[in-house]
Amino acid sequence: MAFVKSEAALKRGALQFHEAGTGEPLLYLHSAGGVRLSPALERLAESYRLLIPVMPGFDGTERIAGLHSMEGLADLAAEFIDSVVKKPCDVIGHSFGGWLATWLAVRHPTKIEQLVLAAPAGFRTEGAGGLPTDPEQLRRAMFAHPENLPPETRAPAILAQNRAMLSHYHGEHATDTALLGRLGEIEALTLILQGTKDGVIPVASARLLKERIPRAHLVYLYDAAHALEIDQPERFTNLVGDFLRRGEAFIVNSAKAS
C-alpha cells in the first residue's frame, strides 16, 4: 500500500499529510516520534482512506507561528477534517496523538465519529512512566518487540526535533488537568488501548480514561509496550478494525469479524 504525501492549505497555514487507501475516511494522529508508516497502518489502509497529517514542526516540517498548544493543534486537526475529509470521521491517536485526539473530541465533537486512544499521553496523574533518558531503558519502555521496528530512514536531527516539539506544544506536563476535567464531555464511542508492557504510559492512566469517558472500552494488548502497532501489528489492526466496523457490537464474538 503506497502512501502519497500532499499538503493542505489551511487558514492557519500549510499542513502536510500522508494518505493511502479508499473507503471511509480514518484520521490517524501520530505520536511524538513523528509519522512511522508501519505495516499496521498499511493494513488499515486496505480497508479505509487513511489520512495521517504531520503536525507542524514534526518530521522536518515548518512550525506555524502562534500555534503552540494542544488546543490549537486540535483546532488545526478540526480544520483539516473540514477542508480535506469534508465530513465527520473516525479518529485514532497514538500517545501524543491520543492526547491530541482527546482534545479534538472535546472541542469539536461534531467532527468525529468513533475514537481510538492508543496509549494516550497526557493523563499520567501519579507521575509514573514518561520517557526515560537512558537509551536502553527508553527502548524497553517503548518496545516489547524492537525487532519488529522497520529501519529508521529519518535523520537524527529530525528525530531530535520531534522530541523537542513535545514541549513546544504542551510544556513538560505529565498531566493535562484542563483536559482531565472535560473527559466527561466526550460523546464519541471510545476504545482505549493499553499495552501490558507499556513503560511510558502507566496503567492508572488507561483506567482513569475508562472511568471518566462516558462510552469507553479499555482493551489490553498482551505482550505490547508503548509502541502498540510495532509490537503487535496484527492484534492492533484486528482490534481497531473490528471496533471501527462494528462499534459497540465489537464485544460480540463474530467469526467473520476479523
Binding site: R207, K210, L218, V219, Y220, Y222, D223, N238, F250
Partner: peptide, 27 residues
C-alpha cells in the same frame, strides 16, 4: 498469558478487554 489475564480479571477496577495470543475477551 493466562496468569496475567486472571490477575487483571481479579484486580481491574473497570471492565476491560484482552487481546492476546491465546486469549481474546472484549469485555
Amino acid at each position: 498469558e493466562a496468569y496475567e489475564l486472571i490477575v487483571k480479571a481479579w484486580t481491574e477496577p473497570e471492565p476491560f478487554g484482552w487481546e492476546g495470543k491465546y486469549y481474546q475477551y472484549r469485555a
